[in-house]
Amino acid sequence: MYETIYARADSVSDAASKMGSAGDGKYISGGMTLLPTMKQRLAAPDALIDLTSIGDMGGVDSSGRSVKIGALATHNEVNSSSALRSACPALADLAGWIGDPAVRYRGTIGGSIANNDPAADYPSAMLALGATIHTNSREISADDFFTGMFETALSDEEIVTGISFNAPEKCSYEKFRNPASRYAMAGVFVAKHADGVRVGVTGASQGGAYRWTEAEDALNANWSPDALDGLAVDEGDMLSDIHATAAYRANLVKVMAKRAVAGAK
């Protein structure tokens, strides 16, 4: 790891001001992606601004169908929230499939969303749930937030403070895990809202997480796994690597989507 300096922020404004005075800084919360990346010298921020001491930026709150999750909520907290489990069980399950127990104690939902790794789980859920991403300066719909692999609508000093959504009538997440890394080779989050179905896909596309709108149309017409039988996912958009070819991933997206619809609750 290259040399860096570390500072703890005690408020969102303190963090933004520390970032403003750093040359090429990075915000850090759990650091479950950032630190390994720095250790491999793939990232070399000259300052780390730690957000984890900021108050009022964690926790999972759910009243009725309205769900709010603070950016600093760890995957373990999201996974073990009984309020979330009754409002939107698929999101709680999703958090429990990230990494391993030690990683889930440290990694946060805000960090995962801001990093927008193409194989991260949360972005697909944010898209399918029609979530709003809250930052220190504005609210951004998930549709506008995820702009490409490792790319988001965030500006350099902007901080994700939390996410919110209205729980759908039914939802489910199905993930085909890489047998070694457990990252999603294809993950599909399906949510049936009162005003329509939304389908978020992660792990598969060269463009990062995306909405599979053809599947949404088919499921709006017929809420059943069979509704997807006639659809084909375009291989041209899919990632291809040593783990899976584009054709394999394209097929996985459809298989995961069908399983998600079958398991939605």
Partner: peptide, 13 residues
């Protein structure tokens, strides 16, 4: 009280 990976945490954290 929580098991974390000490290779993926800074001493300052």
């Amino acid at each position: 009280g929580k098991a974390v990976k000490a290779c993926t945490m800074l001493a300052v954290q």
